[in-house]
Amino acid sequence: MSNIIQHPSAIVAVKTHHLHDVDNDTKCRLHSGTVAMASITGEPMSRVRDAVRLNRHGAGWVDRRRAPAITKTHDDEIESTLRLLGYAGEWHDIKGRPTLAAYLKARTGIQQSHPCVVFMRNHRVAISGELFCDVTNNGLMVDIDRAPWRRKQVHRVFVLTHCIPATHIPSKTPSRVEPAHLTAEQKRRIKELDRLFREAVKAETGATRIKVTSTEVFIIRPADSGWTWCGARDGVVDSLLKLQQHGWIRGNTDEATAYRAMMGY
């Protein structure tokens, strides 16, 4: 029996119609259970895997020579791991075991709006509203209409209903930290530059979503069926800073002007 008392002030409603692209900061192969949890929580894959280890082996796992491997996750493990990460919910058994396609059409109530882990035999996927995330798509969100596994039978759904205080997750991997030499103003400026850059790319390309890595930029426009390569990051920055006559980034939108101003151009 848990000896943790949840105070009402510590319980927060979960964000509906919302998932995350999975941040796989490990070199490990993705698995459906951990992908679903990472997409719902927004936590990097390393932290999700460490939370599974904590649930299975206790905090002492960090003293082992090697971190225990994480592949398959069972139903109850997913619920308890999500609680460690700060998310609680409720189980819904699905009568008749409909196919995923039929289940998605028949959803009602909180299953239609709240983030859910959908269980199909040995496979798990994350859905929330009209968003879908799965290991098949390498942890990237897609519209629910493009969801794979449509003929697989759904037998159980775990619906996330509220957030609770997260548990400290021990890890063998050092936490990501910002360079200590940066001042608060410098950190604020970096964050603002990133925001303006993303807004400028969206305005220039008509994109609805943008993904920026350390070297590349990807976008999704209304007519796209998936991620489209926008260009090398340095090249996109250069196009925004220097007005272009050709190409899909010409730098002539208000958002691009704001980005140039912040960059001192």
Rank of each mutant, 00 (worst) to 15 (best):
W227F: 10
I127T: 05
R56T: 03
I144C: 00
P165F: 06
R97M: 07
G86T: 04
S175E: 14
L104D: 07
K27P: 00
M263K: 12
R198Y: 04
N55E: 13
G235N: 12
S171K: 05
P174W: 14
D234L: 08
H57I: 07
M1D: 00
L140S: 05
E204A: 10
R107E: 01
S214F: 09
G247Y: 12
G58N: 04
M37E: 03
R121C: 03
A51P: 13
A184I: 13
A184P: 09
T208K: 07
K152Y: 10
E216M: 14
S175C: 10
C133G: 14
K172M: 05
Q153R: 15
Q245V: 12
R47T: 10
G42L: 02
I4C: 05
D254R: 15
S171P: 11
E255H: 14
V22N: 02
A232D: 11
T213H: 05
H181R: 10
T41A: 11
A36R: 07
K202S: 07
R151M: 14
E43M: 11
P170Q: 00
V14P: 01
D50T: 07
C133Y: 08
T161G: 01
I5C: 03
A207G: 04
Q186V: 00
H246Y: 15
T215Y: 15
S225Y: 14
R97F: 09
A147C: 04
L131Y: 04
T99Y: 00
E199V: 06
K72F: 13
S32T: 14
T99D: 01
N122R: 12
R260W: 06
L85D: 00
A147T: 02
V12S: 05
A256C: 12
S171Q: 07
T228P: 00
G247M: 11
M1I: 03
E199C: 06
I249G: 12
V236S: 01
I220T: 08
H7Q: 12
R176W: 14
V201N: 01
L241N: 00
I210D: 04
I94D: 01
G86Q: 12
V159K: 11
K187N: 09
N137W: 02
G231M: 05
A258L: 10
T16C: 05
P148K: 11
A38D: 02
G42V: 02
A88R: 14
D23Q: 13
R49Y: 06
A147E: 02
H181G: 07
E204T: 15
T71Q: 10
V201F: 06
I70M: 08
N252V: 12
M120V: 06
S214K: 13
M141F: 02
I249L: 15
T73W: 13
